[in-house]
C-alpha cells in the first residue's frame, strides 16, 4: 500500500512537471516570435498572470466539479452575475452619500462577499437541481447558463454598471509593473488567486471532503457502498464551484471597474479547457488543482502570445484551437504509452 501511494505521488509530480514544461515551451516559443524579446519582460509576465487569473480562479471549482464526473457550463453566467452584484453593492447610497465613500475600506469587502455569495447561491441551485431531479449536470448547467445570464441582465436593468472607483479597482487587478521593477511583483488579485489555489489544493488533499470528491468521480456506486454521502458531496462541490466563480467575477469586475451583464461570455469553455489541459479527466476521478492552474496559465499565455505575435485575428483563433487539441492529444499519447 505504502509503495503504491508513493509511486502514484511520483506519477502526479511527473504529470505536473510535464505541464509546467509544456507551459515553458509555449512561453519560450512565443518569446522568439514576438519581436525584440519583449515577451520576456516583467511587465508581460504580469500581464499574462493577470489575464489568466480569472480563468484560474474559476477553474479551481470547475476542477472539483469535473473530478466528480460532472460539468459546469454556467460558469461564465455566474461570473457575469457576480460582476453585476459586486457593482450594484458598490453603487449603494447611504444617508451620507455613496456607502463606498463613507466606508472606503470596508464596503468593497461587503461587495466581494456579495459577489461570492451570488455565485455560491447559483452553484447551490445547480447542485440541488442535479441531485433532486436526477438530471445530468450538462443539461442542468446548460439551463442555468441561459437562466443566470438572463438574471444578470434583469438585476442590472440591462445596463452596464460603473460604480465609484475604490481599492478593488486600484489594487486587485491594476498592473504594478511600470518602467521600473516593482517588488509587489503582481497585483493583489493574482496573489489572491494563488492563495485560493493553495486552499483548494489543501482541501482536495488533506480533508475528508477532498477524498469524497475523488471517490464520487471514480465510481459513485462504490463510493455510496463505502458510506460516502454522494449527493451531499455533489451539492457541496457545485456550491464551491459557484463560490470560486463568484470570486472570479469580483476579479473580472475589478479589471475595468464595470459590472457587465453581457460580460464573461464563453468563459466556461476556457475554464473547462484549462482543467482538461491540466490533466483533469472529463470521465471523473482524476485531476489536480495545480494542473488546472497551469492549464489556465497555458490558455492565458496562448491568448497573449497570439495577440502579441501580431497575426490576423482569424489566424490567432485557429492556432490557439490547434495548440489546445495538440497539447491534449500528446498528453493522451503519453498516457497510452505508459499503460
Amino acid at each position: 500500500m505504502n509503495a503504491l501511494t508513493h509511486s502514484s505521488k511520483f506519477a502526479t509530480m511527473l504529470n505536473v512537471f510535464g505541464r509546467v514544461a509544456a507551459l515553458a515551451v509555449i512561453f519560450i516559443g512565443f518569446g522568439f516570435i514576438v519581436p525584440d524579446f519583449a515577451f520576456f519582460t516583467a511587465g508581460n509576465v504580469e500581464n499574462i498572470l493577470m489575464q489568466s487569473a480569472v480563468y484560474a480562479m474559476c477553474a479551481l471549482g470547475a476542477t472539483m466539479v469535473i473530478i466528480t464526473a460532472g460539468i459546469d457550463l454556467s460558469a461564465g453566467s455566474m461570473i457575469a452575475l457576480a460582476m453585476v452584484i459586486t457593482a450594484m453593492i458598490l453603487n449603494v447610497d447611504g444617508s451620507q452619500g455613496p456607502m463606498v465613500e463613507t466606508y472606503p475600506t470596508l464596503w468593497p469587502i461587503v461587495a466581494i462577499a456579495g459577489g461570492m455569495l451570488a455565485g455560491t447561491c447559483v452553484g447551490l441551485t445547480n447542485g440541488l437541481l442535479i441531485t433532486s431531479l436526477r438530471l445530468v449536470p450538462f443539461i442542468v448547467t446548460l439551463g442555468t447558463l441561459q437562466a443566470i445570464r438572463g438574471l444578470a441582465k434583469g438585476v442590472a436593468d440591462n445596463q452596464e454598471i460603473s460604480p465609484p472607483t475604490n481599492w478593488l479597482y486600484h489594487q486587485l487587478m491594476f498592473p504594478v509593473q511600470g518602467r521600473t521593477f516593482n517588488w509587489q511583483i503582481v497585483p493583489w488579485g493574482v496573489w489572491a488567486t494563488l492563495v485560493a489555489a493553495l486552499f483548494a489544493a489543501a482541501l482536495m488533499r488533506y480533508t475528508r471532503l477532498g477524498r469524497w470528491i475523488y471517490a464520487v468521480g471514480s465510481n459513485a456506486d462504490t463510493a455510496r457502498l463505502c458510506g460516502v454521502p454522494v449527493l451531499r458531496t455533489k451539492i457541496m462541490v457545485y456550491a464551491m464551484a459557484g463560490a470560486f466563480a463568484g470570486l472570479a467575477g469580483v476579479l473580472e469586475f475589478s479589471k475595468l471597474n464595470l459590472g457587465q451583464p453581457t460580460g464573461a461570455v464563453m468563459y466556461e469553455l476556457y475554464v473547462i479547457a484549462a482543467c482538461v489541459i491540466g490533466g483533469t479527466s472529463l470521465m471523473g476521478g482524476v485531476g489536480s488543482i495545480f494542473g488546472s492552474v497551469i492549464g489556465a496559465l497555458i490558455i492565458g499565455t496562448l491568448n497573449a502570445g497570439a495577440q502579441q505575435a501580431g497575426w490576423p485575428k482569424w489566424v490567432q483563433e485557429i492556432v490557439i484551437g490547434a495548440i489546445i487539441i495538440l497539447a491534449i492529444a500528446l498528453d493522451q499519447l503519453r498516457h497510452r504509452r505508459k499503460a
Binding site: 522568439f32 516570435i33 504509452r337
Partner: peptide, 26 residues
C-alpha cells in the same frame, strides 16, 4: 517509456511554434 515520449511532445510543440514564426506578416 515516458521519459522518451516527453521530449517528443515538447519538441512537437516547439516545432509548431517555430514554424508559426515563419507565417507571413510577423
Amino acid at each position: 517509456m515516458s521519459t522518451l515520449v516527453k521530449p517528443f511532445c515538447m519538441s512537437g510543440l516547439f516545432l509548431l511554434l517555430i514554424s508559426l514564426s515563419l507565417l507571413p506578416g510577423c
